[in-house]
């Protein structure tokens, strides 16, 4: 077995329990949210009807999203906020731990006294972090897909407008959930890349976590505030949320834009790896 593979497997193995906890947490959230759908759909989704513009933005709503439809409900309840936010948080935690976490505790330096290259460590750790993020996202998607038939989320919803016209909206499918979760995984991976880069460049986990979190939270605040203010609308493009919310891939299916965070993560990996090769390790 190659050194890189050993490092990859060991890092995942050391995180078995935390991976299980993150997965369980998300599974509980998505299943509970799904379980509330039958009772909310009976109320016609009125609880969202009076949302103000700012509130709509906060909820990820737009004109085309009907919160009483299965997909609209899942979008507002999970995919416009909790699912991507949790995957972003996990991505940041994993990315900053990949190099900087072990460097701060001194275990990285000890490992590098063995016949392994810094490249093997840098690449296998990134791969391990991305794998864990993917596993948690996949478990989340599977739990929700399994919930669809249990909580009427797969049923088409027909509504009658004031003018007597009817509108039928499709129920949620496994493909919809897979697309939505994949987009959330993508945004989580982008932030994993950012925190990995910061950790690989500095060897400081707290710094990497702090700055990455600030970018995530700051981006969200910037997006919601500037989107609600016409004059500042252009600023939304600075925020990674603009991309995620505007594309709403749970509702509209995968778009090529989903590759953007992969590109960001790849750039962060390359820069972080090269930076890590060239710098001194921090004194543990």
């Amino acid at each position: 077995m190659s050194a890189a593979l050993r490092i990859y497997l060991r890092w995942i193995r050391d995180r078995r329990l935390s991976t299980l906890m993150w997965s369980l947490g998300l599974v509980v959230i998505v299943v509970m949210t799904a379980a509330f759908y039958p009772s909310l759909s009976e109320s016609g989704g009125d609880i969202f009807a009076d949302s103000s513009g700012a509130m709509s933005t906060l909820l990820g709503l737009s004109d085309i999203i009907d919160p009483s439809s299965p997909l609209g409900y899942l979008w507002i309840g999970l995919y416009a906020n909790i699912v991507p936010m949790t995957l972003i948080a996990l991505g940041i935690a994993l990315g900053s731990a990949a190099i900087a976490g072990d460097e701060e505790t001194g275990t990285l330096e000890y490992m590098l006294s063995k016949p392994v290259t810094r490249t093997a460590v840098a690449l296998s750790r990134f791969a391990a972090a991305a794998t864990i993020l993917f596993v948690v996202a996949a478990v989340t998607a599977l739990a929700l897909i399994a919930s669809i038939p249990l909580f009427e989320l797969g049923d088409d919803v027909t509504t009658t407008g004031a003018d007597g016209s009817t509108l039928t909206q499709p129920g949620a499918t496994a493909a919809d959930v897979a697309a939505g979760t994949f987009a959330s995984f993508a945004v989580g991976l982008g932030f994993l890349g950012i925190s990995y880069l910061l950790g690989a460049a500095t060897g400081r986990k707290g710094f990497a976590t702090g700055i990455s979190t600030a970018i995530a939270v700051g981006g969200y605040v910037l997006y919601t505030l500037s989107d609600a203010t016409d004059s500042l609308e252009a600023l939304t493009w600075v925020s990674p949320w603009r991309w995620y919310i505007a594309d709403a891939m749970l509702l509209d299916g995968l778009e090529w834009d989903v590759l953007l965070p992969f590109g960001l993560a790849l750039i962060c990996l390359l820069v972080g790896w090269q930076w890590f090769l060239r710098r001194d390790l921090q004194n543990p």
């Binding site: 050194a3 001194g106 000890y110 016949p115 810094r118 543990p284």
Partner: peptide, 22 residues
């Protein structure tokens, strides 16, 4: 010292030994 083939022939004990706690 950066060459893995060299480090394969070296045994090292750091002054401040940190092993993964798990």
């Amino acid at each position: 010292g950066s060459d893995p083939t060299v480090r394969a022939r070296v045994g090292y004990l750091p002054g401040d030994l940190n092993l993964p706690r798990s």
